[in-house]
């Protein structure tokens, strides 16, 4: 009796870590630009496909391909921001939302055109066997993913809090004019922040790639979860996103244990609605405004 519960607790925590990393990107982008990025799910998928292609065509191990994915996704995010988001940065939010939705349509279908709808998967030798600890099976790719998530979160934290660029990002998000007058190029900083957010999605994609089937629409399932976690953690709050990711991961796996897979989504959406209604500033959110 206790074993299944412990098992799903463990699975939930490990999976929650990956959610957290992806959501961190949403949170950062919203925190800086006040834009809800509806292309985030599709960008996770792009990360998966980059990883898959490197694996299938060049036999690069997904974990080895991480730096390439990060660089590629950062550049992609940077360009997307400059070309499409920046011109509408002051537009009403329905325009912004629909624009990112449009980007999502473009990205998903571009993947469809390039790679067809056939499911793909990555099988890593030696990784398919789960580790067994006291009756609890631990999936290796999930464990590795969790380790990388912890490292990546620290990296992002250091980047945002200990570097000039990071300080410029937070300065821009709270005080645009003050930042401009200090010589900070707000547009460039926004593009960098978007790039970092997209890179987070990309890394999450890489980490998910060995765990599941890959297809152009697979990211959609993560999209709303990212929003939920980002809001739950407090938009713009990194550790909040990490904590919320773990919580949502555990809730999801516990709920699917108790209610069955298809109803478990419902629990998460209900939590989302409750959070939006009662604590839109998130778990650790202070009352602002």
């Amino acid at each position: 009796m206790a074993i299944p519960i412990l098992q799903s607790l463990f699975d939930g925590i490990l999976m929650g870590g990956v959610y957290a990393l992806a959501a961190l990107g949403v949170s950062l982008i919203f925190g800086v630009m006040k834009i809800t990025n509806f292309a985030h799910g599709a960008l996770i998928t792009v990360g998966m496909f980059v990883t898959y292609e490197l694996y299938a065509a060049l036999h690069v191990n997904p974990y080895v391909s991480l730096p390439i994915v990060i660089a590629f996704m950062f550049a992609l995010g940077f360009v997307i921001q400059r070309v499409t988001i920046n011109p509408i940065i002051n537009a009403p939010s329905h325009n912004q939302l629909l624009l990112t939705q449009g980007l999502s349509i473009v990205l998903e279908n571009l993947l469809l055109v390039m790679f067809t709808a056939n499911y793909k998967s990555i099988t890593l030798k030696g990784f398919d066997q789960a580790i067994n600890i006291g009756g609890i099976a631990i999936n290796k790719p999930k464990l590795i993913a969790f380790g990388i998530v912890v490292a990546a979160s620290f990296f992002v934290y250091i980047l945002l809090n200990r570097t000039d660029t990071g300080h410029a990002i937070s300065a821009t998000s709270v005080q645009r004019e003050g930042a401009t007058l200090m010589g900070i190029r707000v547009e460039r900083i926004n593009a960098i922040a978007f790039g970092i957010g997209v890179a987070c999605a990309g890394v999450a994609g890489t980490l998910l790639a060995p765990m599941q089937y890959i297809s152009p629409t697979v990211g959609e399932g993560f999209q709303l979860k990212c929003f939920i976690i980002a809001v739950f953690g407090g938009l713009g709050n990194i550790w909040g996103a990490v904590a919320a990711g773990l919580i949502i991961g555990v809730v999801e796996s516990m709920a699917s244990l108790a209610l069955g897979g298809s109803w478990s989504e419902m629990v998460i959406y209900l939590i989302f609605i409750l959070v939006l209604l009662f604590k839109p500033t998130g778990l650790f959110g202070r009352k602002t405004r």
């Binding site: 300065a171 709270v174 005080q175 003050g178 007058l181």
Partner: peptide
């Protein structure tokens, strides 16, 4: 600038 426009956090 007027009103200081610091980065409060």
């Amino acid at each position: 600038p007027e009103g200081r426009k610091l980065f409060p956090q």
